[in-house]
Design a protein around this nucleic acid. Structure first.
Lengths: 106, 106
DNA sequence: CTATTCGGTAAGCAATGACTTACCGTAAGC
DNA sequence: GCTTACGGTAAGTCATTGCTTACCGAATAG
């Protein structure tokens, strides 16, 4: 749910690959396993991490479990980036304003 | 430089904290160390990872080295999120269109 | 020229984490 | 009922990585 968990979830290559594979529609665990070089339990564990981070959600249909991208998860990450971004920009213009008047060395 | 490296760089709590500390202006390594619970070499190593990921840049002034947030690094990450986002949305509306006509179970 | 501050690198250690195989619960098919 | 496909969990292994101390180069101060 936290930004921390989102970044951690997307840091692993396999997990990122799994997540990106869900971008064009829901998939079952065995579907995903077929496209990945790791075992099915490994995929299951990765999906758990993605789910805890709020990036995917599950919908059981019969004996299968379909995994979806969770839109809100991406939203939160975008929001984090946006606020960070504006902070950096304002600090940057402040920096320029300062530098034209004085030199802020030690 | 790659998205992979960006996510990996921001996945570590200490490193993320260091990066966020730079949001309101440049800092030296010793400055950063003072605000972190880890040693100065550890900070130095973290900054190296952030730099390799393209998230920060250095500007040596005399014997000091000032670290800055690198705007382009954030840009690339935002671009990645945007394209991912639009892919998910278009697949999502496609999904809805399909589901109103048929049921795509096995 | 010598002393001091700043900070990057090396080596080694301990914790995290990604993967495997083995196992078990659950829902559908016969 | 029994069997089979699906998939989550447990336990153990091995590589990754974040941390430490020790060391060393480079630039300013005196």
């Amino acid at each position: 749910m936290t930004n921390q968990m989102v970044f951690t979830a997307l840091a692993d290559p396999t997990r990122r690959n799994i997540f990106e594979g869900l971008r064009d529609g829901p998939k079952t665990v065995t579907d995903i396993s077929a496209t990945q070089p790791v075992s099915r339990p490994a995929v299951s564990q990765h999906l758990k991490v993605l789910q805890t981070a709020g990036l995917v959600k599950v919908e059981p249909r019969g004996t299968r479990r379909f995994y979806f991208v969770r839109h809100e998860g991406l939203d939160e990450l975008r929001h984090y980036l946006d606020s960070f971004w504006s902070d950096v920009l304002s600090a940057y213009s402040r920096e320029i304003a300062n530098n034209s008047g004085e030199n802020n060395n030690a």
